[in-house]
Design a protein around this nucleic acid. Structure first.
Lengths: 224, 224
DNA sequence: GACACAATCCGGACCGTGGTCCGCTTTGCA
DNA sequence: TGCAAAGCGGACCACGGTCCGGATTGTGTC
């Protein structure tokens, strides 16, 4: 089963490797195994780093954790962290990979209404609920892992979500500019917004879910 | 006439000054003159800094400009920059202040359909066009000025836009959760998204405008 | 198996930049 | 003219990110 992890195979890797294509659509989205035959020591260090990072984040909060601390806690040099994960965002995203994979599996090939089998508007509603749930469960980390504004929409997880929602939207609202409308829908699930609404405005999560449902209804013209 | 500049009176100012209230609604939104009786030297340095910053940004691009460079070009110490503008984002936002003020004036008290007098759905459509236009005209700076994810929704210009759109939406779509729906609409005008669509996906600006119009139609149930 | 060699990876010294701090100067008011 | 408040500025710090000489790994050869 193919997933879209947070990492590309090798972050600062060779400039345009041959890139063997299987399923063009999926490969283009960045869907690939996320540990492409690493050398033994590299793999070991990668694991150590993830473990150390997870521990530190759990202990002191995501944005109180320093790259140098992580390296030290893993018994590894600072350079190793950056070679493996590219940058701070990359490391944090790697920490979120598991959860994201699970969500992807659920809406790509899980049971309805999230997975295939239910009508598109229904799947859209389910997608919002699931994504929201996932976002809330480790909001803080998700916030800290946000890439700089220029790359928000280029990062694999976002592209996968976009691809999926756009597909559903094309069925549920054929006369709309689905490419664009999808960005708008996804904006309501943006970790930064969710954090703002819940932790700064004190909204209950249920209200966000209701708003999503309502938004889907309005946009597709359907009603649950 | 009252505006909501990018800066609060004094960024890292006293912890909760008395804050004299006039029009609670507006003050709460951060609407106030943006140069609150600065001392002579301070005002002079502020002006110098803005001028220097504008020059450097125009010359070398927004994100190639260093705070130290700006300070040097203004013939001023680094500390002065930060005291006056809080942080890098603050300085960049100050550079955008003029344009933002003009937009605010236009939709708060300008002629219809942007200003008061036109039906709400119409004003919404006009707002999108105007905001999009403004965003595009110095996208790069707008991108560089984006605050960190946690504050995107707390910054005065966003709050003013939100307040305005929410008000229109309450009239045009009374049965919706306007508070939330507004965030969703505004997301389509987000500089980061606009930049992505135009410069990375190569979409023409017209398409963004059309999408906004369509979105307003769907959300309010009206048609132009 | 032993060996040699190339590709890969390691790690910590190093750099640039955003942001802070505090002793000194300027300002404006009485 | 004196004096408090406001402002100034550059030394200083922390942290993200880079770089390159040296160590590890794995593979082809005998």
């Amino acid at each position: 089963m193919l997933y879209a992890g947070f990492m590309s195979a090798a972050p600062p890797s060779a400039p345009t490797p041959p890139e063997p294509v299987d399923s063009p659509q999926l490969v283009q989205l960045g869907l690939d195994a996320d540990e492409p035959c690493l050398r033994a020591d590299a793999a070991r260090n990668r694991a150590r780093l993830l473990e150390a990072a997870a521990g530190l984040v759990a202990a002191h909060g995501a944005d109180a954790v320093t790259m140098e601390e992580v390296a030290a806690a893993a018994g590894v040099g600072k350079g190793t962290v950056f070679r493996r994960f590219g940058d701070r965002t990359g490391l944090l995203m790697a920490l979120l990979d598991h959860g994201e994979k699970k969500l992807q599996a659920a809406f790509l090939s899980g049971p309805p209404p999230l997975g295939p089998g239910a009508p598109p508007a229904e799947r859209l509603r389910a997608f919002g609920r699931a994504a929201l749930h996932r976002t809330v469960e480790d909001l803080e980390l998700q916030l800290a892992a946000q890439p700089d504004p220029g790359r928000r929409f280029t990062v694999p997880p976002y592209r996968v979500r976009h691809h999926h929602v756009a597909m559903l939207l094309r069925q549920a609202a054929p006369d709309a500019d689905c490419e664009l409308l999808t960005h708008t829908l996804l904006a309501q699930l943006d970790p930064a917004l969710v954090h703002h609404l819940i932790h700064q405005c004190g909204m209950p999560r249920q209200r966000l879910e209701d708003a999503w449902t309502d938004l889907v209804d309005r946009v597709t013209g359907t009603t649950a």
